[in-house]
């Protein structure tokens, strides 16, 4: 039976493979090659060795600065998003009436795209700041806090539904057993609930980590890096280097490769973390 299916490979595999080759696979290797060249289109590349990487890492370039800013955003958003999402999920799994309606409402912002979301928050934050005679782009701290608020608004509902799914899988007997043993609420939370939903926590931590690390649309719409690129995240820095700075496409591509290395490293750590949790559970 396997043999007869095998010959249908052009029908089953070829269309997706061809699209994958055009959209991702070929561009990935071309991109890797281009990072060592100077180019304006992919046909006029000239080999320059590691020059692009040196320029990308030059302290005057702003790339390293955007990395630091990204880390600040990632740390704050991973912590706040998960704390809020877990707390709300805990409230919504108390067997109260009407929790489904609340869940539906809290999740909704997650469906709105980064660009629309960014401008919605930009206009709202500016309306608030206008009372104090300032704007979102006057100080990088405003943009930073604004970005954290925006990310929370978008992601808390998403993480919340995952936490709810995790919490609902904790057998109620365990909570009862803990109560019988005399555990208070905090003790039950610390010693029963959290260890039981550790796989869920791992998933949520890495989902928020990778999505805030790669964030682009929200950053572009909210501040576009202003003031003076102080609120520019890595993805935005790369896109600007590539499309707005004349003759620096190669540097942009080198930055993209460095970005990939960091993102892949995070993904590998995630894989290990998930695997080891699976063994425990």
């Amino acid at each position: 039976m396997q043999r007869s299916l095998k010959k249908y490979f052009p029908l089953f595999v070829l269309p997706t493979s061809a699209a994958f080759l055009i959209a991702f696979l070929a561009p990935f290797f071309i991109g890797l090659y281009l990072s060592f060249t100077k180019f304006t289109t992919i046909t006029n590349a000239e080999w320059v060795g590691l020059q692009n990487y040196q320029r990308a890492l030059d302290p005057n370039d702003g790339f390293l600065g955007s990395f630091w800013f990204t880390i600040l955003v990632v740390v704050a958003s991973v912590i706040t998003v998960n704390l809020f999402a877990f707390t709300i999920a805990k409230l919504l799994t108390q067997k109260l009436r009407g929790t489904n309606i609340f869940r539906t409402i809290y999740f909704m912002p997650n469906l709105i795209g980064g660009i629309v979301l960014g401008y919605t928050w930009q206009s709202m934050i500016n309306a608030v700041l206008a009372n104090y005679g300032t704007t979102l782009v006057a100080d990088w701290k405003y943009g930073y806090i604004g970005l954290i608020i925006l990310v929370n608004w978008q992601q808390v509902g998403y993480m919340m539904v995952i936490y709810i799914a995790g919490l609902q899988n904790v057998p109620t007997e365990l909570n009862e057993a803990a109560a019988i043993d005399g555990a208070g609420r905090w003790q039950t939370l610390r010693n029963v609930t959290i260890p039981m939903i550790m796989p869920t926590i791992t998933i949520c931590l890495f989902l928020t980590l990778s999505s805030s690390f790669k964030m682009f649309d929200q950053n572009l719409a909210l501040t576009d890096g202003a003031p003076m690129d102080r609120t520019q995240m890595v993805a935005l820095n790369i896109v600007k280097t590539m499309f707005s700075q004349i003759g620096r496409q190669g540097v942009g591509q080198a930055k993209a490769v460095l970005f990939v290395i960091v993102v892949v490293a995070i993904a590998l750590i995630q894989l290990r973390a998930t695997r080891s949790r699976e063994v425990e559970a």
Binding site: A26, F28, G31, L34, S210, K214, I238, M242
Partner: peptide, 11 residues
């Protein structure tokens, strides 16, 4: 896993 910025120009 790969961020879009890696492939955007060649794509």
């Amino acid at each position: 896993v790969i961020p879009f910025q890696m492939v955007m120009f060649p794509t």
